[in-house]
Amino acid sequence: MPEVEDLMPKLLSSEIKAEILILYHMNPGLIDTPEALARRIGRGQVEVTKDLEDLLILGILRKKPLGSNEVVFLDRDRDRDIQKLLKAHIESLGD
C-alpha cells in the first residue's frame, strides 16, 4: 500500500483524474475502453489515457485485454482500502 503522501498527487493532480474517479465511484460497475470513458466524461482520448495511468498504477482501476480492446474497471476492494487510508489520514490531521 503506497504512503498517503504518494497517493495524493497521483489521485488529485488533474481535473480529469477527479472526473474519472467520480465517474467510477458513482458507477462502480462501469467497464469500458479508455476511448469510451473519454466519451462518457466528454474529454479527449489522449488526455484520458494519460491520466488513467496513475490510477492504474495505484490499483484503484485495473485494465485487462478483451479481444482487440483493453477495458478499464474499478477494483472495488482496492478502492475501499485507499478510501480507508485517506479517511484515517484526514482524521489524523484534525488531532
Binding site: N27, G29, L30, I31, D32, T33, A36, K64, P65, L66, G67, S68, N69, V71
Partner: peptide
C-alpha cells in the same frame, strides 16, 4: 447484484 455498464460492442469480444 452487479449493475454493469459497458459499450455494446464489447459483448462480442473475448480474450
Amino acid at each position: 447484484l452487479r449493475v454493469i455498464c459497458t459499450s455494446p460492442n464489447l459483448l462480442l469480444e473475448a480474450s
